[in-house]
């Protein structure tokens, strides 16, 4: 009985989470005439929307751009945020003030920052470049990543490091052998979020790119015209665009689990 209830709850949760996205896949398989109909479940599946994305309006470039930018920015974010979060957590650097300032950068409405950034990037020649968006995404995700990692670092008892230090290990060894394995779930989760957000960011990608660096999140929007919404191709591109993040989430999720079983800290 308990077991049945458990699976019922899990099943319901998964259904609610998955159904809308599943419906995108269903829509992607529909011909234009089937988009609006009395029975949305009965239709003849077609691959014409995917064909459209391959032959008429290719989206490879956009997918590649998104990949480059989210991966690069995430790597830079981790390089910046891991040491910073460690510093904040262990040394209370800046007495919390710098950490708070870091977090507060994301409180400023993005649209308002967009114009000054645009003018700045125009002067620097960074518009419609990969570097430009990588820098922006690094900046956007940095504060969140630092903050999240800070929390995870805080969860590792300092005494663990102290003990290791008393045992004569040097700092690098402690970081590598003790801290990093414990922080792995945190790193996995943080990486994943950074990847996903840079992947899906729209406003800045829309404003700061044209054709060279245009990302797939902008690509997904280009099926909405003034007299036609191309639901099918849009849904098809959404389906494709979700896959890389799905794979990333999948890989990271395994790390989360693996790291977590290791993370059973006996204080």
């Amino acid at each position: 009985m308990r077991k049945a209830l458990f699976w019922l709850a899990v099943g319901l949760m998964v259904f609610v989470f998955v159904f809308p996205v599943l419906w995108i896949y269903v829509t992607a398989l529909k011909a234009p005439d089937d988009i609006f109909s009395d029975n949305p479940f009965i239709f003849t599946p077609t691959l014409e929307n995917f064909d459209y994305l391959i032959n008429v309006r290719p989206a490879f470039g956009e997918l590649l751009n998104s990949m480059i930018m989210s991966v690069c920015s995430t790597i830079i974010v981790m390089l910046i945020s891991l040491p910073a979060a460690y510093s904040f957590a262990r040394f209370n650097t800046g007495n919390g003030h710098i950490l708070f300032i870091t977090i507060s950068t994301r409180m400023f409405p993005g649209v308002v920052a967009a114009i000054p950034f645009f003018l700045l990037f125009r002067t620097l020649g960074l518009l419609d470049t990969h570097l430009g968006l990588v820098l922006l995404y690094t900046y956007f995700n940095m504060s969140f990543a630092t903050f999240l990692l800070y929390g995870f670092f805080r969860e590792i008892p300092e005494s663990l490091e102290h003990a290791a230090m008393l045992d004569g290990y040097d700092r690098i060894t402690i970081l590598r052998r003790i801290v990093f394995p414990l922080i792995k779930p945190g790193v996995a989760i943080t990486t994943m979020f950074c990847l996903i957000w840079s992947w899906n960011e729209f406003l800045f990608a829309f404003l700061f790119t044209r054709r060279v660096a245009r990302t797939v999140s902008v690509g997904q929007s280009t099926f909405w015209g003034s007299v036609e919404i191309q639901w099918g191709p849009m849904a098809a591109l959404m389906c494709i665009a979700v896959l890389p993040t799905l794979i990333a989430a999948w890989i990271m999720q395994r790390h989360v689990v693996r790291g977590l079983t290791f993370g059973a800290v006996k204080g």
Binding site: R57, G225, V227, E228, I229, Q230
Partner: peptide
Amino acid sequence: IHVALEAGGAAD
């Protein structure tokens, strides 16, 4: 030259 277009089937 680079041309701005509005989205949708019209662009195609």
